[in-house]
Computed example of a mutant assay.
Amino acid sequence: MQCKRKQALLLSAVLMSSSITALYAQDGVAGIQEANTKVRGYFDVGCNLMYAVGAILGLIGAVKVYQKWSNGHPDTGATAAAWFGSCVFLVVVATVLKSFFGI
Rank of each mutant, 00 (worst) to 15 (best):
R5M: 02
Q7I: 08
A8I: 10
A8F: 07
L9Q: 13
A13T: 07
A13E: 11
A13V: 06
M16N: 01
S17M: 04
S17F: 01
S17R: 01
S18H: 01
S18T: 07
S19E: 09
I20Y: 07
A22M: 07
A25V: 06
A25N: 08
Q26I: 12
D27P: 01
G28P: 02
V29K: 13
A30Q: 14
A30V: 11
G31C: 03
G31D: 08
I32W: 08
Q33M: 03
Q33R: 04
Q33Y: 01
Q33N: 07
A35Q: 14
N36Y: 03
N36M: 05
N36D: 07
T37R: 08
K38Y: 09
K38H: 08
V39E: 09
V39Y: 12
V39C: 08
R40T: 15
V45E: 13
G46V: 12
C47S: 15
C47D: 13
C47P: 09
N48L: 12
N48V: 06
N48Y: 02
L49R: 13
Y51D: 15
Y51R: 14
V53D: 09
V53G: 07
V53R: 09
G54S: 13
L57E: 01
L59N: 09
G61K: 00
A62C: 13
A62M: 13
K64A: 10
Y66N: 09
K68P: 03
W69P: 02
S70F: 06
S70Q: 11
G72Q: 04
H73N: 11
T76H: 02
T76W: 01
T76R: 01
T79R: 09
T79H: 07
W83I: 00
S86E: 03
C87E: 02
V88D: 02
F89H: 04
V91P: 15
V92E: 12
V92F: 14
A94P: 11
T95A: 14
L97E: 15
L97M: 15
K98W: 05
F101R: 15
G102Q: 15
I103T: 10
I103Q: 12
